[in-house]
Write a protein that binds this DNA or RNA. Structure first.
Lengths: 142, 142
DNA sequence: GTACATGCAAATGCTTTGCATACTC
DNA sequence: GAGTATGCAAAGCATTTGCATGTAC
């Protein structure tokens, strides 16, 4: 296990276990979004006895430490990702793919929202659009 | 049943049943957000035999006709509301209250998002912030 | 009369929880 | 050694589905 995958946990007081470390490694090595089940499948290749309840509990610990954020984008189960600058998600209704805007674009939108929410103390912003991604759009119009 | 609660269903080809009409009436008479269970409780006062599965199926019909939109804001079950101009939701983590920005403010944010999502054909935009509402903020800071 | 919606009951899918054991600090 | 995380099994909650009956058109 590379140190860059354990250090963030130690820094934030998250007890380091193989389960947590590999789950964090999976999330931190990708800019993608994973369901608990997807993480379970991946990490089980390394830790065969891993339980999905442990995945949920690990994600809770990582989210509590601010390393991971969860979202409910459209239908289906929650997705988890390594925390980065807030960014809007684009969810394709056809293929289910989740992409995200770059954080500059995201930042402009989020600033606009912040400016409107006086009186409310925002802790977390969630922005997503559902629709058709470029690929599915092309093939449906093809 | 007032005509203004049945006419929108007829216009859109949604078969009118007492269950659907009263569910729609509940949603259309309020600018609030309801879970399926909340709607069930309210409408059961008028239609005592109402099943929650019927609530879900009615909401699906109303949503399919474009009269109702559903959102997953934060934790907990989905909420449903009568469709109006798209607007961001503000969800208080403390008291659970869901408020929304007025549609002018919402529109500006949503336009900003639209402008960034080229290539993606947006069908539905979802924007919500979780945090503390003014009331809970005041009482927590005493 | 035909097609569709409802009630009822059971099943599903995702997520959480209790408890004994194992591990981290 | 003390406190916490894990595996395992079971429960929980929100939501969906199958089927017979009832209702809207």
């Amino acid at each position: 296990m590379e140190r860059r995958f354990t250090e963030p946990l130690r820094e934030r007081g998250v007890r380091i276990t193989p389960q947590r470390a590999f789950i964090w490694q999976t999330l931190a090595s990708s800019d993608g979004h994973f369901t608990a089940e997807e993480l379970w499948e991946r990490v089980r290749e390394i830790l065969p006895g891993l339980e999905i309840s442990t995945v949920y509990r690990s994600l809770e610990a990582l989210a509590g430490a601010g390393l991971v954020v969860e979202s409910r984008v459209g239908e289906g189960p929650r997705v988890f990702e390594a925390r980065s600058a807030p960014h809007p998600h684009l969810v394709c209704e056809e293929c289910g793919n989740i992409s995200h805007l770059d954080s500059a674009a995201g930042g402009r939108i989020l600033e606009a929202l912040e400016a409107e929410t006086e009186g409310f103390r925002t802790r977390e912003l969630h922005v997503f659009a559902t629709g058709l991604c470029a690929e599915c759009l092309a093939s449906s119009e093809g």
